[in-house]
Amino acid sequence: MSKTVFLAGATGVIGSALVKLLVDEGYLVFGSTRREDKADYLRSLGAKPIVVDVFDRERLYEALIQIKPAAVVHQLTDLPRGLDPSQMEAAINRNARVRTEGTRNLIGAMLASGCESIVAQSIAWAYAPATKPYAEDAELDIKAEGLRQVSVGGIVALEQQVLNTPHIQGTVLRYGHLYGPGTGTDQPTGASPLHVEAAAYAALLALRLNARGVFNVAEDKAEVTSEKARRVLGWVPELRLPHVLSAQ
């Protein structure tokens, strides 16, 4: 099997860590960024930069048809550094668009290129209130209101496309609240904390093992259980990069 990967969102906090892991694993990584000035950063990590906006459907299709990746890893978000509260309302709406329209464009480009495998980032705090810890078969909070409704709606759209599109073999990683390099905090945060480098390792393991379905990915004693990720992926929350990378 080809080890060519298209990493969408390669300069994000997870993407930056994941590029290094994939390159060290022997993958040929094509990493996407919206900004030309980040191309050199991706080259320094060992990736081949692709400057493209996920909403530029024509350019995205053109890129994937040329690359013909064996797999796509979807780590796209549109959030402010450190989740700045003053910017979050607008960011939540932008992020939901990435997860709906952006995912649709990405999967369309995959199909056009002949690629059938995708690993996609989701979140572990979109569950409807129920008995904790939440496992992957718990219901999502589709009856939420306000900005939470926007966030959950984006997640539902992303997951349905990744898991239910014909001819696509999809994996969804429901990440906990990130901390570590590039996230704005070095300490565990939220009800389901997750170190950014451990998050990157979950994506690598899912890709390496060709695992399919939904996986919670968070530390022990979280609101969610990550037992499935431990059992199927061999993932543990203590995983870290050999050396620290800083997201640019």
Results as ranks from 00 to 15, higher is better:
residue 238 E to P: 02
residue 227 E to V: 11
residue 33 T to F: 06
residue 49 P to T: 10
residue 63 A to F: 04
residue 133 P to H: 01
residue 88 M to A: 00
residue 100 T to D: 14
residue 234 G to Q: 09
residue 174 R to N: 01
residue 80 P to K: 00
residue 246 S to H: 14
residue 241 L to Y: 04
residue 14 I to Y: 03
residue 162 V to Q: 06
residue 206 A to Y: 03
residue 52 V to M: 04
residue 100 T to P: 07
residue 150 V to F: 06
residue 81 R to M: 11
residue 243 H to M: 15
residue 205 L to C: 01
residue 39 A to P: 06
residue 108 G to E: 02
residue 138 A to Y: 07
residue 220 D to V: 12
residue 106 L to C: 00
residue 144 A to R: 09
residue 94 R to W: 04
residue 207 L to K: 05
residue 177 H to K: 08
residue 117 S to H: 15
residue 150 V to Q: 06
residue 133 P to F: 01
residue 132 K to C: 10
residue 5 V to C: 12
residue 111 L to M: 11
residue 20 K to W: 13
residue 185 T to A: 13
residue 139 E to V: 08
residue 148 R to G: 03
residue 146 G to F: 08
residue 235 W to E: 06
residue 15 G to H: 07
residue 87 Q to H: 09
residue 74 H to L: 12
residue 29 V to I: 13
residue 229 A to L: 09
residue 197 E to C: 12
residue 172 V to E: 00
residue 159 E to T: 00
residue 89 E to N: 10
residue 200 A to G: 12
residue 20 K to E: 02
residue 85 P to M: 06
residue 98 V to G: 05
residue 160 Q to F: 13
residue 216 N to P: 11
residue 25 E to Y: 15
residue 192 S to Y: 01
residue 35 R to Y: 14
residue 209 L to G: 10
residue 100 T to Y: 10
residue 213 G to W: 14
residue 199 A to Y: 01
residue 156 V to Q: 10
residue 208 R to Y: 04
residue 23 V to L: 12
residue 170 G to Y: 05
residue 205 L to E: 05
residue 8 A to P: 00
residue 82 G to S: 12
residue 142 I to Y: 09
residue 182 G to Q: 05
residue 130 A to L: 11
residue 61 Y to A: 00
residue 154 G to D: 02
residue 54 V to T: 13
residue 46 G to F: 04
residue 55 F to V: 06
residue 13 V to T: 11
residue 20 K to L: 08
residue 146 G to K: 02
residue 66 Q to R: 09
residue 1 M to R: 13
residue 147 L to Q: 09
residue 130 A to I: 08
residue 238 E to L: 12
residue 197 E to D: 15
residue 31 G to C: 02
residue 150 V to E: 03
residue 213 G to A: 06
residue 107 I to E: 01
residue 149 Q to H: 10
residue 122 S to N: 12
residue 147 L to A: 07
residue 153 G to A: 00
residue 202 A to K: 05
residue 18 L to F: 02
residue 205 L to P: 00
residue 2 S to R: 07
residue 236 V to T: 15
residue 224 V to Y: 05
residue 41 Y to N: 08
residue 161 Q to A: 06
residue 182 G to V: 02
residue 105 N to G: 04
residue 201 Y to G: 08
residue 151 S to N: 10
residue 40 D to C: 00
residue 148 R to E: 08
residue 202 A to Y: 07
residue 152 V to F: 05
residue 214 V to N: 10
residue 186 D to N: 14
residue 238 E to Q: 07
residue 54 V to L: 00
residue 2 S to A: 12
residue 156 V to S: 02
residue 208 R to K: 14
residue 16 S to K: 08
residue 63 A to W: 01
residue 20 K to S: 11
residue 206 A to S: 15
residue 208 R to S: 14
residue 132 K to L: 11
residue 98 V to K: 03
residue 140 L to I: 10
residue 150 V to P: 01
residue 160 Q to C: 13
residue 171 T to K: 05
residue 6 F to W: 06
residue 35 R to E: 14
residue 219 E to I: 08
residue 112 A to F: 00
residue 218 A to Q: 04
residue 104 R to H: 15
residue 113 S to K: 01
residue 202 A to D: 05
residue 203 A to Q: 07
residue 146 G to I: 05
residue 132 K to V: 04
residue 169 Q to L: 13
residue 8 A to L: 09
residue 89 E to C: 03
residue 73 V to F: 02
